[in-house]
Amino acid sequence: MNQKKVVLSLLVSNHFGVLTRVTNLFSSRGYNIISLSVGETENPKFSRITIVTSGDEAIINQIKLQCAKLEDVKAIQEVKDSELYMREVVLVKVKVSYMSEDEFMRFVEVNEANAYRIAQQLYMVEMCTGTQAIDAFIDKLEMFEIVEIARTGGCALAMSTATVYDKQ
């Protein structure tokens, strides 16, 4: 069966242990998590968990139905590919020895990222965009010395009238 990558948006109760329940379900049933992010929503009672996962159609269907059974999961939305608006943030601490500060700052600007000088030849670079663009940008930064990277999972909404509150 064809494997596909799917972005799921879960509206969950905003209290401790809920993330564990969701990730526990994925590990105990052998489902894949490509990335995950979680944060409060417009209603402080709820958090939104965005999970990027993969599997064939039957597995994806199982993932949605099994998640829906969790007491703390209030709603689930599969964000359609055509409507997907997803952003990730990456922070890269990078050592730049063979470019001047001006040159490096220009390089960063051309790539639509931001940078801050931490110390001599040491910069914090930040970028907020799609997964592939971040991957490509990290590849480019390889020409310098990457000291460390912190990267979030994707967070997503549908670029349409569809919301997580719609009856699925």
Binding site: N24, S28, K69, E71
Partner: peptide, 11 residues
């Protein structure tokens, strides 16, 4: 025990 029984309870 809540952590231990998470995968074997409905809630």
């Amino acid at each position: 025990i809540a952590g231990i029984t998470m995968p074997i309870t409905k809630h």
